[in-house]
Design a protein around this nucleic acid. Structure first.
Length: 369
DNA sequence: GATACGTGGGC
DNA sequence: TGCCCAAGTAT
């Protein structure tokens, strides 16, 4: 493969330029203020397929609640999932939790040092193992995530054929480029460059510290797109006053099947079939929203129902676990992202702290009709 | 290697 | 009632 940084001298210049750019431009993110392997691990798992901006608050809350491997290991899985609610890819949380328990049992409660050993933990793949080892332990191993892959493809150019872009070639290129003296910082700098300058669309080549080494100046092949599918779904909002002068309410929730492929064991509003809608004589929905999950658009309508009405419906006798949950306990429940969104919009969810100012609260974007 | 797994934000 | 995709992993 032809290489825009073929000589060691070229690579060294690349490193210096990248690292000095990073020193000036690194975003101030909470997990960058520590080298605690546990915290790095938590942040890396949260960051899998998830934007840094989304992770910031969740990371802070998570670390506050589970400051150590031991505290995480001792927690109940449902409490871990409750903190993960809305982040998606819930398997990550389960694996993080089970890995913490494994470490308590078999590794003296600490994370292994090498990327090779880290790689054996559930939920820790090549990327995460390299990230933890390089950032927290200074191991000279390069990470290749989506950002690094894009940066390298652009810097190195397409090369001779499809093989040149294989994972193995990219990993090799990344390791040749790696700064042996500061692997953790170098890795983060490469990712930061991808996340903030070498963007998938409209890369900011004018601001790129290593543009002199770049063969392509920003070209990037488009990926095949996937067809979106539309699905309609209906949910019931069943409330019951709790006393206290009617100030507090309880909401009826159901738990998804433990063997469901999506969001197993998570809690959501009771679903209503078409038959239920007729049967319940439901009138107008209190809420219509769109909720996208991977390649499916859910067009969701929420109908307010009296407890007694709901009890009479066929769906109510399904074998799912049901429970009344006090509104002020909702933050402790492992809700699906959709359930969380609905309860927030309808002002049932006791909002933790965030005060929104100057913004129209109903998110507008995914509201429909 | 392909596919499933969630969600929010940007345009 | 769009489309992309983000600090991936497991199967």
């Amino acid at each position: 493969m032809e290489n825009a940084v073929p000589t060691e001298q070229g690579r060294e210049t690349f490193r210096l330029l990248l690292l000095s750019w990073y020193r000036l431009n690194a975003r101030d993110l909470p997990w960058r203020q520590t080298r605690d392997p546990y915290r790095i691990w938590v942040s890396e798992v949260m960051l899998q397929q998830t934007r840094a901006a989304t992770v910031v608050d969740r990371y802070t809350q998570f670390i506050e609640r589970f400051p150590s491997i031991a505290s995480l290991a001792l927690a109940r899985e449902e409490d871990v999932l409750a903190l993960w609610s809305g982040l998606g890819y819930y398997r990550r949380a389960r694996m993080l939790h089970s890995a913490a328990q494994l470490l308590m049992k078999e590794h003296g409660g600490s994370l292994p040092k090498s990327s090779l050993e880290l790689r054996r933990l559930p939920g820790v793949g090549d990327y995460t193992a390299a990230a933890i080892a390089s950032i927290a332990r200074g191991e000279a191993v390069a990470v290749v995530d989506g950002n690094v892959e894009r940066v390298l493809m652009r810097v190195l150019g397409k090369g001779a054929g499809p093989r040149s872009a294989s994972a193995a070639r990219l990993k090799q290129a990344a390791n040749e480029l790696l700064d042996q003296g500061a692997p953790g910082t170098f890795n983060q700098a490469m990712m930061e460059l991808g996340a903030t300058v070498c963007l998938p669309h409209g890369p900011l080549c004018g601001s790129c510290p290593v543009r002199e080494f770049c063969r392509t100046q920003g070209e990037h092949p488009a990926r095949p797109r996937k067809q979106m599918v539309s699905v309609k779904s209906h949910y019931a909002l069943v409330k019951k006053p709790m006393g206290n002068g009617g100030r507090h309410v309880e909401v009826l929730l159901v738990q998804r099947q433990p063997d469901a492929s999506q969001m197993p064991g998570m809690w959501e509003l009771p679903t209503l079939g078409d038959h239920d809608l007729i049967e319940s004589k439901a009138s107008e929905p209190v809420l219509r929203i769109r909720h996208a999950i991977t390649n499916k658009n859910f067009y969701v309508q929420v109908f307010p129902l009296e407890a007694e009405t709901f009890r009479g419906l066929s769906s109510a006798s399904d074998s799912e676990t049901q429970d009344w949950v006090a509104a002020n306990k909702l933050p402790e429940i492992a809700l699906t992202g959709l359930a969380r969104k609905i309860l927030m919009r309808l002002d049932v969810f006791a909002k933790p702290r965030q005060v929104r100012q100057g913004k129209a609260l109903p998110g507008a974007d995914d509201e429909f009709l």
